[in-house]
Amino acid sequence: MKKLLKLTCLLIVFACTAMAAPSSTLAEPSGKLVIFHAGSLSVPFEAMEKAFEAKYPKVDVLREAGGSQACARKISELKKPCDLMVSADFKVIDKLLIPTYANWNVRFATNQLVLCYTDKSKYANIINENNWHEILQKKDVIWGHSDPNLDPCGYRSLMVLQLAEKYYKKPGLYNAVIANRPKENIRPKSVELISLLQSGNMDYAWEYRSVAVQHKLRYISLPDDINLGNYKYDDFYSQAVVKVTGKEPGTFMDIKGDSCTYGITLVKNPPNEEAAVAFLEYLLDPKGGLKVLDDMGQPPFVPCRVSTPEMKKALPVKLQDKVEVKN
């Protein structure tokens, strides 16, 4: 009986010390770092996680990938604890998080949309940048995109199709192509489409070029006019408009076409500010995170950008010299 009592006391003491998390009074960043990020950043961010944890072994980076709107809602609606939010469309941060949940928004990388496929896809041997929209209309072709309400890649795919209608001067093209895409071919995250392509359950899917490269998929590159990759064509892009669900159920908002720009922000009152800022320092470093992105087919802004001088001042002091003000 005495032995049991001693053992129980020991266990309780042990539990208490284990639960006492390392406080932030320690000099080195430590503890959990929660990052919500876009699905298309999964591969580069996994590499960054490893590099960052190697540099700061006491930090445990916990990533959750998802459609960017879904990620934003986790913060705003579900109040899930989060340090950093990385969006495939910086506008999502502007619209859904600023000013209540974030103060600033750093644009750090670009991307463009491509049509991905594999050797086993139907008509893989004849598809090219001229006939892709005809092939997508064929009844026996299964093609899909992600949910526009949850993932920027989703509404961007629709924008590409709208722009294609204008670019190729084929009225009705958008509706004709969409008609061959039943609801069942939509998935919440664009990266899910990859496994469907690889297992042969889908023939064609709209994805970011970086993702296609990272997963070694074949893809059709589209003209800059319609691929949402070049900010010089922003005016042409703005002709495309997609309606998506808004902040509350039953509300909607219109999103105008814009070049793919990735944004990152520090969520207000983060659980682990020290580690979060350290990660941002790493990410915004041209020899650190930005190099990782470049290596993985995702062209970064060097240096990264904020839209206004006020926003630059709102950044943590350590980061202010890593960005420039550019619109």
Partner: peptide, 17 residues
Amino acid sequence: YHPMIAPVLIYERYEAY
């Protein structure tokens, strides 16, 4: 994902709203 069975719908709504 589509067609949505009830548990998927519940999760989708939870995630979104």
